[in-house]
Write a protein that binds this DNA or RNA. Sequence first.
DNA 1: GTCTATAATATGATAGAC
DNA 2: GTCTATCATATTATAGAC
Lengths: 227, 227
Amino acid sequence: MLDGSYINETTLRPPRGESFPVSRPTPRRGYHHGDLPAVLVREGVALLAETGVAGFSVAKVAARAGVSSAAPYRHFADRDALLAACAAAILADLTGVLARAAEQAGPDPVERLAATAGAYARYVLGHRAGIDLIYSHDFGAPYRETVHERSRRFMDVLMALAADALPAGTPWADVAEFVYVHVSAAHGYAMLLVNGTRPPQDVEAHAARAAAAARDHLTGHLARLRG
Amino acid sequence: MLDGSYINETTLRPPRGESFPVSRPTPRRGYHHGDLPAVLVREGVALLAETGVAGFSVAKVAARAGVSSAAPYRHFADRDALLAACAAAILADLTGVLARAAEQAGPDPVERLAATAGAYARYVLGHRAGIDLIYSHDFGAPYRETVHERSRRFMDVLMALAADALPAGTPWADVAEFVYVHVSAAHGYAMLLVNGTRPPQDVEAHAARAAAAARDHLTGHLARLRG
DNA sequence: GTCTATAATATGATAGAC
DNA sequence: GTCTATCATATTATAGAC
């Protein structure tokens, strides 16, 4: 992931005077970058990881990509468009990581779900400040949908895993509620790890603890359901 | 809370040429504000709640307080000093709120701890974007200790509550680990509430869910300890 | 598509009057 | 202690050359 696939009609600025095209023309040769939009997003994600949303600027991303500060505006309408593309990229990437972690955790539904919490911690420790963009930034109306759609896919993956771990016949709304808590706990734990005083040295130990916490939450939840 | 008590030798700029005084001279009359530092922190906290760390600036805080953009620099060495004072104020306030919530929850240790999660959600829904400053901002060396000290008191309150809820004789490190997860889950849940798509309409319902999640976590944890 | 140059704005921070 | 005035800097975004 973290390729160009997250650039769509919403994030792309339309060519002069035209309305948004259904498909992007294939890039022609002869330009300095084969795919500047993808490079900008990659560098934007890296910058976010290093400095957080506060330190993010179009100029810095351009400099990192080795182009002028004006170049990004040919591909992204404004700062928020680039930021949204970065958020979408992170979300898509994270979704894939969690899905793979669940897959590798074996057949037990409880372990599969717990594994996503561990993977979340691992991912956040790798991406540091960038990750809170997903939750903490209010994207402008034109870009909100792009991010929102990725966010939906992210939740869908976890909903499927939670539905397997919870008792058969659990109402959809209750599954959603559980996933919400599951995600927020994993997120909170990971964020405190990143920003807190704890050394991020032993990543796997932290991931194991996050998974254990998720397991405890699920166990306690199931116990409550049983009476 | 949210008064002037968080201003200490670390956040206060020393008077011309002197080193840091042990105590601040009592404010004399004849100035436009009785206590501008306190006003600045109050407005800073309000601004943080509205715009988050990204929208925070010394100039805006000064404007809100009705003073010139230069005035804050007589009381705070730089932007980071003001930001740290705001963070310290929020932390102290939040600590008091959680302690009171536990007190009002009755004698059951489980309920007392769960109540802090509910109160956390309630508080964050009221302070919105401002709260993540506590975790997400890297304060400069001179101000780090100020915030850190408040952070320690915050954790101490929760440690005491958790020690009561966990089995007698639980090692201190295990209590700390549990509190860490407890706080991060509450924080994550509250932050997703604030920044997510969910309407913050039914604050009490959200607080109840946060408390329920904390109860599930504790229950599951105790079950794991038993077997 | 990318560059150079530039405008408009906001910001952090200081100097000196009162 | 606060104000006015000011500077240096960084940022978003655009215009026009190539």
